[in-house]
């Protein structure tokens, strides 16, 4: 678990660089409240020995913070933590038993309950000490969605938003954890080197999205954004690297991981391109989380010396 925390540090550093105090306050609030809720629920409601030292609530807290804009009122962050830990995790019996990623449960709950606050992203200005006063704006993904909806051409919209290079190192509006592709990839590399995760889930998600959006883009480049734009914006990398790979809620076999990853990729693109929300990664992951028990039941690893019955 602590390897995951280390892998998230570059992302945290970049968000602090762009969003300043806001990033620090949001992260601290989410982490502290997640740990506190886990401890309180285990101690007083489930009467178990608290296990907050295992680091899972810490990871949930940071992930939850990564999924929030940095000017979110503290009360909302605490509600999100309560839903993530209380509903997303503890109600199913704690670590290892939750079917859905707790941080995503928290995020989606907030997105539906507080849509305005959750989608007013501060514009990255470099390190600042202000918290709630930051200027807010839409994410490139939002601008794109709105623009296409209003009938503008992609190339026209592209001029209004940061270039791909700027997006790569994180100079754009968005939730604090999803902006900097470079930091996310750094974390991915670390997780792979430490063998915390295998490459199958992230790569299958990214590849699916790239191929799917690539086809749409080739069909009509003026009505659909290019694949790179899709991969660099929104929470695809954050979701693929840190949230879809959550041990508890992902399949056990390699083949199952492919199915799961491709499923997430397809659903994400469907929501982004055809749905009402500009962003769909969190919904896609939650939907595929629900399929994981089914995947585990029917997609088994190939046995050594397996005898074919048919």
């Amino acid at each position: 678990m602590f390897d995951v925390v280390i892998a998230m540090l570059p992302v945290l550093a970049i968000s602090i660089y762009f969003f300043g105090m806001g990033a620090i306050i949001v992260t601290l609030t989410a982490v502290v409240s997640c740990l506190a809720f886990e401890w309180l629920i285990q101690k007083y409601m489930l009467k178990q020995e608290p296990s907050i030292t295992d680091g899972s609530a810490l990871v949930t807290g940071i992930l939850l913070a990564f999924n929030m804009p940095t000017n979110l009122p503290i009360g909302i962050i605490i509600i999100g933590s309560l839903v993530a830990i209380g509903v997303g995790k503890m109600s199913f019996g704690g670590l290892g038993n939750n079917p859905f990623n707790p941080a995503l449960v928290g995020r989606v709950f907030l997105l539906i309950s507080f849509p305005v606050q959750m989608t007013s992203w501060p514009v990255p200005t470099g390190f600042s000490n202000s918290y709630t006063d930051a200027v807010t704006g839409a994410t490139p993904l939002g601008v794109m969605k709105e623009g296409i909806g209003a009938g503008e051409s992609v190339s026209a919209i592209m001029d209004k938003i940061p270039s791909h290079m700027e997006m790569f190192y994180g100079h754009m509006g968005g939730s604090m954890g999803e902006i900097a592709a470079v930091a996310l990839l750094l974390g991915f590399a670390y997780l792979l080197i430490r063998k915390v995760i295998t490459w199958h889930i992230p790569i299958s998600i990214i590849a699916t999205i790239a191929i799917f959006t690539g086809i749409l883009w080739m069909v009509n480049p003026e009505a659909n954004a290019d694949p790179l734009f899709h991969l660099l914006t929104g929470g695809i990398l954050l979701g693929a690297i840190f949230m879809a790979t959550d041990y508890v809620t992902s399949p056990m076999s390699i083949k199952g991981m492919w199915v799961y990853g491709i499923g997430i990729g397809v659903i994400t693109v469907l929501i982004r391109v055809f749905g009402a929300y500009p962003e769909g990664v969190s919904f896609a992951i939650l939907i595929m989380n629900a399929f994981v028990p089914l995947i585990n039941m029917y997609i088994k690893p190939k046995r050594f010396g397996e005898i074919k019955n048919d």
Partner: peptide
């Protein structure tokens, strides 16, 4: 508790779970 990390599945030389 088991956190279903699937490490045991990936190391099993017999392809079991």
């Amino acid at each position: 508790d088991c956190i279903r990390c699937a490490k045991c599945v990936s190391v099993c030389p017999q392809g079991l779970e």
